[in-house]
């Protein structure tokens, strides 16, 4: 393989996240038990499982919103540990979208998007605003730029949150139940935005119960229960022929 030939195969073969033997406790409570997960560049992974199974905790470990106690997490070649510099570098690589959007209510939509560019990337304001407008256009709400988050609908807020993360040009995007706080008619607009993002080749880990999204977008579906990864498969096999009883039970409950 030549260096200049950056073919799809070579790009997607690259491991971008590697979690090996990861454990986490909250005090006495063993939340995550021996998590092993390898994510390739450009892969789209959907994580599902019953409430309290540790899905959020797992993806929050990837950008150090939670600390793991045992095992290894390597993101884009950087191993996560207590070193603040590394945590900083990883957070620049990893964008995150939350269930409750977590927009900054005292700043306008545009300021929400520019903030990190200006203060983390040290970009001049004008340039940051241009980039922010570009991404707001991509999530189809450039006309709301001057409004405050409190003046937008839930779906619009979540799209702003996606744009805000994308502004930092992350190589990985984490989504923690991005649509579960939304009314049904708004879920669609957010899912469409996420599908477009997936089509652009972004590496994505999505915790969601939207099985339609999993079927159309995911390369792999991961099922978690009681802090463990129980099953991991391509969406077709996962939905048509789940191996484990717990997976079957879960699927029968949500479908």
């Amino acid at each position: 393989m030549t260096i200049t030939n950056n073919s799809d195969a070579s790009a997607s073969a690259k491991t971008i996240i590697q979690i090996t033997g990861m454990h986490k406790w909250y005090g006495e409570f063993h939340v995550l038990k021996d998590i092993n997960l390898t994510v390739l560049k450009g892969e789209r992974i959907v994580v599902c499982g019953p409430s309290g199974s540790g899905k959020s905790t797992m993806i929050r470990c990837i950008n150090r919103l939670e600390e793991h106690q045992r095992g290894k997490i390597i993101v884009d070649g950087i191993e996560l540990n207590d070193d603040l510099k590394r945590i900083d570098r990883i957070r620049r690589e990893v964008g995150m979208v939350f269930q409750h959007f977590n927009l900054f209510p005292h700043l306008t939509v545009l300021e929400n998007c520019c903030l990190a560019l200006i203060w983390v990337r040290k970009m001049p304001r004008k340039k940051a605003e241009n980039i922010a407008m570009e991404y707001l256009a991509r999530v189809k709400i450039p006309e709301q730029a001057k409004k405050y988050p409190g003046q937008l609908s839930g779906g619009q807020q979540q799209r702003v949150a996606i744009a805000r993360s994308l502004c930092m040009s992350p190589s990985i995007m984490l989504f923690d139940e991005p649509t579960s706080a939304l009314d049904p008619e708004m879920i669609k607009e957010v899912l469409e935005t996420m599908i477009e993002l997936a089509e652009s080749g972004m590496t994505m880990i999505v915790v969601t119960h939207e099985m339609g999204f999993a079927k159309t977008v995911a390369d792999r579906v991961i099922f978690m229960d009681e802090g463990q990864i129980i099953e991991e498969n391509d969406p077709e096999s996962f939905f048509s022929a789940p191996e484990h009883d717990r997976t079957k039970l879960f699927l029968s409950q949500i479908m």
Partner: peptide, 8 residues
């Protein structure tokens, strides 16, 4: 968390 996740 949002501030942290953005790298602030």
């Amino acid at each position: 968390e949002a501030a942290k996740a953005l790298g602030l």
